[in-house]
Simulated scan of single mutants.
Amino acid sequence: MKKLLTATAILMAAPFAAHAGADFVKGDRTFAADAELGATVTTGNTETTSLKGRLDMKHELGNWENQYLLEALYKEDSGEETGKRYYGLVQGNYKFSDVNYMFANANHEIDPFTGFDSKSTISAGYGHKFVDTEKTTFAVEVGPGFQYKRLDDESAAEAGYDTEESWVAHGVMNFETEITDNSKFKQLFVADYGESLEGRSETSITANIVGALAMKFAVIVRYNSEPLDNKKSTDTETNMTLLYSF
Rank of each mutant, 00 (worst) to 15 (best):
N63R: 14
N66D: 06
N66W: 01
Q67G: 08
Q67N: 07
Q67M: 10
Q67D: 04
Y68T: 01
L69Y: 04
L69K: 00
L70T: 11
L70S: 14
L70Q: 13
L73C: 05
Y74C: 07
K75R: 08
K75G: 09
K75E: 09
K75M: 11
E76S: 11
E76A: 04
E80S: 05
E81R: 10
E81L: 07
G83V: 06
G83R: 04
K84R: 11
Y86N: 11
L89Q: 04
Q91V: 12
G92E: 10
N93G: 04
Y94A: 00
K95A: 09
K95F: 15
K95P: 05
K95S: 15
K95I: 15
F96R: 05
S97V: 02
D98T: 14
D98F: 11
D98H: 02
N100V: 01
Y101R: 12
Y101H: 09
Y101I: 00
Y101F: 02
M102H: 03
M102C: 04
F103I: 14
F103E: 14
A104C: 10
A104H: 10
A104T: 11
N105W: 12
N105M: 02
N105P: 08
N107P: 15
N107T: 13
H108Y: 09
H108A: 07
H108L: 15
H108I: 06
E109A: 13
D111V: 05
D111K: 03
D111I: 03
F113H: 12
T114E: 06
T114C: 01
T114D: 04
F116E: 10
F116Y: 11
D117K: 12
S118A: 13
K119C: 01
S120K: 06
I122M: 15
I122S: 00
S123I: 07
S123V: 01
G125L: 14
Y126Q: 11
G127K: 09
G127Q: 10
G127F: 00
H128R: 05
H128T: 11
K129L: 08
F130Q: 03
V131W: 14
T133N: 07
T133S: 05
T133Y: 13
E134K: 02
T136V: 07
T136K: 05
T137Y: 04
T137A: 11
F138W: 12
F138A: 15
A139F: 08
A139E: 15
E141P: 00
G143P: 13
G143Q: 03
P144T: 08
P144M: 10
G145V: 12
G145S: 13
F146A: 09
F146K: 08
F146L: 10
F146Q: 02
Q147A: 00
K149A: 01
L151Y: 07
D152Q: 10
D153G: 02
D153V: 00
E154N: 12
E154L: 01
A157Y: 06
E158F: 05
E158Y: 13
G160K: 12
G160W: 05
G160Q: 13
Y161Q: 13
Y161N: 15
Y161D: 14
D162R: 12
E165I: 06
W167M: 13
A169S: 01
H170R: 11
H170P: 02
H170V: 02
H170K: 11
G171E: 15
G171D: 01
V172I: 03
M173G: 13
M173F: 06
